[in-house]
Amino acid sequence: MSVQDLEKIFQDKIDADIRIEPKDWMPDAYRKTLVRQMSQHAHSEIVGMLPEANWITRAPTLRRKATLIAKVQDEAGHGLYLYSATETLGTGRDELLEQLHTGKAKYSSIFNYPTLTWADMGAIGWLVDGAAIMNQVPLCRASYGPYARAMVRICKEESFHQRQGFEILLTLSRGSEGQRRMCQDAINRWWWPSVMMFGPNDDASPNSAQSMQWKIKRFSNDELRQKFVDVSAEQVKILGMTLPDPDLAWNEDKQHYDFGVIDWDEFWNVIKGNGPCNKERLEARVKAHEDGAWVREAALAYADKKRDTVKKEIA
């Protein structure tokens, strides 16, 4: 069969909403796009543990501490679901980690911002996880089977992350003057980076059309961003706080919120590695990997030894 025939069969399947599975024929560019997007997502989950781990030892109550540990543990799990799904495309775990550690692969730039106060745990849960959920729910229907299945699992677990975050902010918003200030300050710092999480505007996002045709993506960056702004602009009222955007206003004609211009220079700057914590995050990941090397080697040596013992006993 010619490549054109195979491509047609492939696209017909996608158009008919039939999932693509690991052993099915797929265009190289589809495979490459998936490996890039899925590994980037996996890396984001793994690096995303760092800003929150920063507050585990300083959580204000045992309940908050247990919750935060569970959330960080979920993120490790989400990273693993996604790494495994990516590996079905033929790229090994070692290679994926190597790409992260050398800076060749990216992760979500939101995790290059520092977590300065306890309120940041609330703002991350509400806004960062909220934006992530907005992005991730449509991915549960992505055309690649293992990716879609991993996303279903992730979305089920993610909802608690957002709710616990909002609860943290709600508690602070009903607290002392100082706590309310801390709450507002965290919202101020996390709002714009969260809005940027949806990626460049549609007219500056050249790969989007192809990803839509392949049904890896179901909604455009700007559509999802608008939805996020609309939802958040209402939710913030319950906190009695404000979003740091003087242009934010309900537009009766559009039935959507208008919002201010995004500082894309900041966005690209952080992606290029000049965010407040890029260096620190990557160093922490590399160090964890290197410090764990002896554990991985010892476990392998132990497994080999056990296998040899069994062989000898049989002989």
């Binding site: 799990g77 693993l80 775990r93 299945r149």
Partner: peptide, 23 residues
């Protein structure tokens, strides 16, 4: 449910518990 890396079967079962049955 999915896949994971482990040195041996025992570790695979324990990791599977942590990765796939947290709830």
């Amino acid at each position: 449910a999915g896949s994971l890396h482990a040195a041996d079967a025992e570790m695979a079962i324990e990791n599977a518990r942590d990765v796939y049955t947290r709830r």
